Lab assay of single mutants.
Amino acid sequence: MATGGRRGAAAAPLLVAVAALLLGAAGHLYPGEVCPGMDIRNNLTRLHELENCSVIEGHLQILLMFKTRPEDFRDLSFPKLIMITDYLLLFRVYGLESLKDLFPNLTVIRGSRLFFNYALVIFEMVHLKELGLYNLMNITRGSVRIEKNNELCYLATIDWSRILDSVEDNYIVLNKDDNEECGDICPGTAKGKTNCPATVINGQFVERCWTHSHCQKVCPTICKSHGCTAEGLCCHSECLGNCSQPDDPTKCVACRNFYLDGRCVETCPPPYYHFQDWRCVNFSFCQDLHHKCKNSRRQGCHQYVIHNNKCIPECPSGYTMNSSNLLCTPCLGPCPKVCHLLEGEKTIDSVTSAQELRGCTVINGSLIINIRGGNNLAAELEANLGLIEEISGYLKIRRSYALVSLSFFRKLRLIRGETLEIGNYSFYALDNQNLRQLWDWSKHNLTITQGKLFFHYNPKLCLSEIHKMEEVSGTKGRQERNDIALKTNGDQASCENELLKFSYIRTSFDKI
């Protein structure tokens, strides 16, 4: 039985969820670079991206490699990797027998973001014989899940209580170790020597080791999670996991709180800001991140802002960003909400898709409305799209047979046209069989910064309504002859009103 693990408890099935942008060198404390989270699957090609990484700022997932063999891993080693800020997950990587050479110096898994409450997941690794993470000293947050690894031993010899604050939620089941077939031998045991430290858990006094050649490092209890030197002297209180010299914040392997210019500090002093819960960055760093993602459509890219001495992905609820200094300031009234469309555009074809934009005031991208039916549609669209004030790209209304009016965009005031449909149009209306009105132009103002209007096959939309939009939106004169079809717009509506004058002759039985 794995020490510190839980057996036999019912657990939810383990679901495996399925960018080499360097964020800056980590400095003297770390020998390499800070790398983003990685999802490495199918083959070993991307694994080489770990070569210079000291910190993975995010998670590391290595999974679904069915053609790899043990010899493929023999020359692979990433000794610079010290810390993973989120979680480490391995799933069905064939041929991998140990992690001792792959990650010989991995010391800390912070667990800032977890995989279903777990910071370390080893699942269905069919050839893994031992973990071998002999320098792993601290899992700051989260638990361990090690399950269905039929060859995995050296679990009962690990004292997880020396690595985690609590072992109650560890789930370590259905491994070879369960069948008591392992016969784990710690260093020196074969020669009758006791080389590794022994600890007591559940009444068992057991030597602690990761492999037959690597003991588990056990520091004096007084050192807590700070770690200790090879001689057993406690590291500085700002260290986490390990250090090369005692009581020196510049000799830590990793930091308990924050890293700044080669030393570990309790908090980031001005003019620095907390970033990702582990390091200090200056304003320029946060500003660069903001600008890199301002026009990016890459998933996970955030326009970072500053709030409460932190550089964070977005302002919290009730705050909006001051564009001059990136500071989050309290909103006066309802907060603006910028919604970034991942692929640059979004099609609204149902109430469900409209709900995804609920509360958005600025759309960074283009909207395509293609709704053919739905219950209580006008009210639903207004509830979900009615706060949109600005669209950076274009607005396209296409084959939306259920629409009679666009009044559900009740606050839309600006279409920038930074991206144009077919390279020309910022407003595009095609084949809307029941569209009769755009907006009530006596109450609604709309500016279209650039781009043209396109109207074709809107049989109940009168040309007068379209011409009014040209005047109000500032697009009059931009359109070419064929942009607004004269014969297919309003051709099934009563669009022309003329005053009919009647004269009559009164007659009676005795007068003409």
Rank of each mutant, 00 (worst) to 15 (best):
C35E: 00
N257K: 10
L64D: 15
L29V: 07
C311A: 01
W278Q: 03
R279P: 00
C328H: 00
E51C: 15
N170M: 09
K251C: 06
I40F: 03
L63G: 12
L50W: 02
Q287V: 03
S225M: 06
N42F: 09
D165L: 11
L50P: 00
L89M: 15
L60Y: 00
T229K: 05
L99V: 09
H59V: 09
V55S: 02
H28L: 09
S324H: 10
R263A: 01
L131S: 03
K67P: 08
I222M: 04
Q276M: 04
L44A: 13
G300D: 12
P313L: 04
V144K: 00
R92A: 15
A230L: 04
L332E: 06
G188L: 12
F205Q: 06
R92Q: 08
V218R: 12
R74Y: 08
G203F: 08
G188V: 07
S225L: 08
A190K: 06
L96H: 01
I109N: 00
N150H: 05
K129I: 08
G241W: 02
Y259V: 06
S161V: 08
G192K: 15
W278I: 06
L63S: 13
T194A: 06
Q216S: 04
L102M: 09
Y134F: 13
N43I: 03
C280L: 01
Q61P: 00
D169T: 11
D86R: 02
P270D: 01
P31Y: 09
L89I: 08
R298H: 02
F78S: 02
N195T: 11
N179L: 06
C53Q: 00
H214M: 13
L155H: 15
D248A: 04
C219L: 03
V55D: 01
R110V: 04
C223A: 03
R279E: 02
R113W: 04
E124P: 00
H307F: 08
C286H: 00
I40P: 00
L63A: 06
M137A: 07
L327E: 13
C328K: 00
L174V: 15
E49H: 04
T250M: 10
A119N: 02
L106N: 02
Y273D: 01
P79S: 06
C234V: 01
F285V: 04
F283Q: 03
Y304H: 03
N242W: 12
P271C: 02
I56T: 01
C335V: 03
F115Q: 03
S143H: 13
N117R: 06
S296R: 03
M83Y: 02
D248R: 02
S324P: 14
L90N: 00
L174G: 10
L44V: 12
E57T: 05
I82M: 14
W278P: 02
C255L: 00
L88C: 01
D248I: 03
C186T: 10
R113T: 07
K80H: 06
P246T: 03
H214T: 10
H212W: 08
L81K: 00
D261Y: 04
I146F: 05
M65P: 01
N135L: 02
R41T: 12
V144L: 07
I185V: 15
L240V: 04
T157Y: 11
A198Q: 02
C311F: 01
D75N: 14
A230I: 13
R297F: 07
L136Y: 01
W210Q: 06
K191A: 05
A156L: 04
E97G: 12
N149T: 09
P249W: 02
N135E: 05
G32S: 03
R162S: 06
S237L: 06
P104S: 01
L326P: 01
N308E: 13
F275A: 03
H302D: 04
E57V: 10
E207S: 06
I163H: 01
L90K: 01
I185R: 06
G142C: 00
D184A: 12
C252N: 00
E57L: 04
H290S: 08
T194D: 07
S77R: 11
F91V: 11
Q204P: 11
F66A: 06
C301F: 07
Q216W: 07
V265T: 05
G300Q: 08
C328W: 00
V281P: 01
H212R: 08
P79D: 05
H48E: 15
I172H: 04
I185T: 07
M125G: 04
T68S: 09
S244H: 11
D75F: 11
D159T: 13
G232H: 07
G188F: 11
Y87I: 00
L50F: 05
V206T: 15
S323E: 14
P249Q: 03
F283S: 04
R162F: 08
I163S: 01
N138I: 12
E130V: 05
D261H: 15
Q276A: 10
L99F: 08
C264R: 00
I84P: 01
E130C: 03
H48R: 06
G142H: 01
N308H: 12
T140E: 08
T329K: 03
V173L: 15
L90I: 06
C239I: 00
M83C: 08
N175W: 13
K193T: 10
W160T: 01
K251M: 15
Q299A: 07
L60S: 00
E49N: 15
L128V: 03
L96N: 01
D86Q: 10
I109C: 00
L90P: 00
L332M: 13
H291T: 01
K292L: 13
R46E: 06
P249T: 06
L289E: 11
I146T: 01
G300E: 06
A119E: 00
A198N: 13
R110Q: 12
Q61T: 14
R141M: 07
I122W: 00
W160H: 02
